[in-house]
Amino acid sequence: MKAPSPFGNRRIFGILFFVVLITTMGAGIVAPLLPVYAQGLGAGNLEIGAIFASFSLGRTIFVPIFGILSDIFQKRWFIIIGLALYSVVSLLYFISTGVKGLILTRLSQGIASAMVLPVAQAYVVDLVKKEKMGTALGAFNIALYLGLSLGPILGGTLNDRYGVGASFIAMGVFTLSAMVFASIMLPSHGEFKGPLSLDYKAYFAMIRIPKVFSSVFIRFNYTASVGMLWAFLPLYAQNEVHLTSAQTGLVVMVNVLVAGLIQIPAGWLWDRVEKDLVLLLSFLVTACGLLGFLTQASFLSLFVSNGVFGLGGGMAMPALMAMVGSESKRSGMTGSGMGILTFAHGLGMLIGPIMGAWALDGFGFKGIFGSALVLTSFGVIFWMMGRSRGSYGDTP
């Protein structure tokens, strides 16, 4: 007898995988270009941080709302509408000739993105069984990381050959293609569960669950570190190490590529071995990557350090999602649960670039890498303190 798939409905899983892959590839196209592009418009360090943070501000504010609403209405429509808005907003890059325009454009894209990724992740949680949660979410995360790894390479190449405008066009085309594909291929998911009730008490009750809160805290700390590097590593690579746009794209890409490749093995480990070992090992690997940034600076050293940093973070991601996914599925609030985790991600990407700007102004680029190391340390220490007090019970 054929064994059941760990991914639930393979067809729906594949459709969601492709939609997220194309969407994140479009978003990743502009990632290595924005800091240098903004600097060319006269932006200072703090303003560059604000440009990156504005995307996360929009997503952080709206992702809890869309998460709750997606538990009431069909998730399919949130994904389609979010992709449509993202495509339209991409056109605003052409008319954003100043720092304020870029901030508003990124803010609008953040709001649109809040309707896509967390809802797609919640869709997957609904499809799979609890005991396969780590494996399934690890496999699904490959779409996210693969898109974000291929995007910077494509964006850097387009910028070197045709200018930054070509990258903006490509971003819009990719997200529009994902929207059309989702509209045609993605089936309806569940029925309307009205009457409309935004139960924030249940939402905050879930956050107070020790396993959920610890997952959120670790995700925030790691993502804040990522936010620092995404905002200022391209500047460091091009202004200090004198890399080309294509080389900078490769440096940015390797982080998410390695993180994507480790998703299925990391999810498999989480479903089968000691949970603390997975999280502790992920922290040690992450720390090694950040320490690498504090040594010599060259294309090879940046490439390797960012790859190791991505490996450590990628190891922890299926674990955190599986813990929150199991708790949210138990209470029938998968959209809200994935929204909580995405909220932590957005908050980290909101605060990280601002912290990076302060660190850069006060201590230079090395201050950014040192601050990121301290942040990730706080996350794992908090987890181990909770484990020593027995706060988590049997971790799923």
Rank of each mutant, 00 (worst) to 15 (best):
73 F>R: 02
50 A>S: 12
29 I>S: 02
57 L>H: 05
42 G>Q: 10
77 W>C: 06
38 A>V: 08
67 G>W: 00
60 T>F: 15
17 F>H: 09
22 I>E: 00
98 G>C: 09
40 G>L: 11
17 F>G: 04
43 A>Y: 11
63 V>N: 04
31 A>K: 01
83 L>E: 02
63 V>G: 01
92 L>W: 14
44 G>V: 09
56 S>W: 02
31 A>V: 03
17 F>P: 01
44 G>S: 14
100 K>H: 13
41 L>P: 03
80 I>D: 11
21 L>I: 07
61 I>E: 04
70 S>T: 13
38 A>L: 08
82 G>S: 12
103 I>W: 05
56 S>G: 07
47 E>N: 09
48 I>E: 02
103 I>M: 14
70 S>F: 11
34 L>M: 15
33 L>Y: 06
32 P>N: 14
94 F>D: 12
19 V>A: 05
91 L>E: 06
61 I>M: 11
89 V>L: 08
50 A>K: 03
44 G>L: 10
91 L>D: 06
18 F>Q: 12
65 I>K: 09
41 L>H: 09
46 L>N: 07
48 I>A: 09
72 I>L: 14
46 L>V: 12
47 E>Q: 15
33 L>H: 05
35 P>T: 06
52 F>G: 01
25 M>P: 00
101 G>I: 15
73 F>G: 02
69 L>C: 07
58 G>N: 10
108 S>M: 13
103 I>T: 08
58 G>T: 07
67 G>T: 02
59 R>G: 09
88 V>M: 13
27 A>Q: 00
33 L>F: 10
80 I>K: 13
20 V>K: 01
25 M>L: 15
75 K>P: 05
106 R>F: 08
98 G>H: 13
16 L>K: 06
30 V>T: 07
65 I>H: 10
78 F>M: 08
76 R>P: 03
108 S>L: 14
68 I>D: 00
46 L>Q: 07
76 R>M: 12
80 I>A: 10
87 S>R: 06
71 D>Q: 07
93 Y>Q: 05
107 L>C: 11
21 L>G: 02
77 W>E: 07
54 S>G: 10
92 L>Y: 14
66 F>Q: 03
59 R>N: 12
42 G>C: 10
110 G>Q: 05
48 I>N: 07
76 R>W: 13
89 V>F: 15
52 F>R: 00
110 G>F: 03
69 L>F: 12
82 G>P: 14
76 R>Q: 13
33 L>Q: 08
68 I>K: 01
96 S>T: 14
71 D>C: 11
18 F>C: 14
56 S>V: 04
41 L>R: 11
98 G>W: 10
90 S>K: 01
87 S>K: 04
81 I>L: 14
107 L>F: 15
60 T>L: 15
102 L>D: 07
108 S>C: 11
